[in-house]
Amino acid sequence: MAMQLLLDAYQGKPTPKVPWVPYAGVHCAYMIGEKADVYLQDPDLIAKGVLYAAERYKADGVPLLFDLNVEGMSMGCEATWYPDNPPAITGHPLADKTLAEANLKVPTAADGRWPVVVAAGKKVMAQKGDWALMGLFCGPLTLASHLRGVKIFTDVIKNKPLAHEIMDFCAQVCAESARIYRDIGCEIIAIVDPVASQIRPETFREFVTPACQEAIKVIHEANRVSSFFICGDATKVMEEVCQVGTQGFAIDEQMNMPYIRDLAVKYGLGFGGNLKLTLALSLGIVDPREDAIVSMAAGGMTGFTLAPG
């Protein structure tokens, strides 16, 4: 367990060994014998789960939460809770209303689910060892999807003024989320935008890149380390991810690790991945030990963090 090792890797620096981050998420709940829906609404349980996961996995960093619904639910989006998963947003307030009609406000630390997150984060910060607490917040396009539904993917092509209005609002929400994690004390703060892999590069540049800038500024002005997490086959937007302005990025199991390593080295960025979450860790079709060795061999020791993909 070594926080500085992880911070160095996340900034693209060479490291004497490869740091390791389990994105434990609601697996923390499982490990302490709790249901995910109960766990995520109780700061004591979240703190207990995160601290346990850090010790159990001998981690160099652990996210406080891996739940991209906090912001949307804190603005009143309808959602369904699950005992074995994070909640899922089911209602989109901007599907048939404008921002003004829906009267959405940027949620602060006092709104919605945030007080539970803040209380949990403070408890973890007070007790944790030599590892980094990571604050992960919902990225702008994923948040826009939660607010507008699938229509946002048509808007970014066919109704750009509306898409820009929604994304500008989401940028404000992201910046506030970054402030909340900054104030908790998280050493690493990451934008997590899984749906940003499902758009074209020019759409990424026009909508996602600008919507991340205020949040990135918040993170860097506080001297915290930034990252951008993306899921799926993000090959077509990886150059854009590298240019978004964070100090690194994380990718999933569908990406080719040597390609990602070379891209990260080219841009001087940290990069994390890409244990096969599905094939190895979940289904066991691929041996997890062999998978880890393959990832580490490909990742190298400059800027690389071993993590689930």
């Binding site: 699950y82 899922a88 999807s145 539904g149 993917f153 499902q198 599905t278």
Partner: peptide, 15 residues
């Protein structure tokens, strides 16, 4: 992967 767990899958399915 899972339309509940994965936002990209959620909105692909919602399409």
């Amino acid at each position: 992967l899972d339309a509940v767990q994965c936002a990209a899958c959620q909105y692909m399915f919602e399409a």
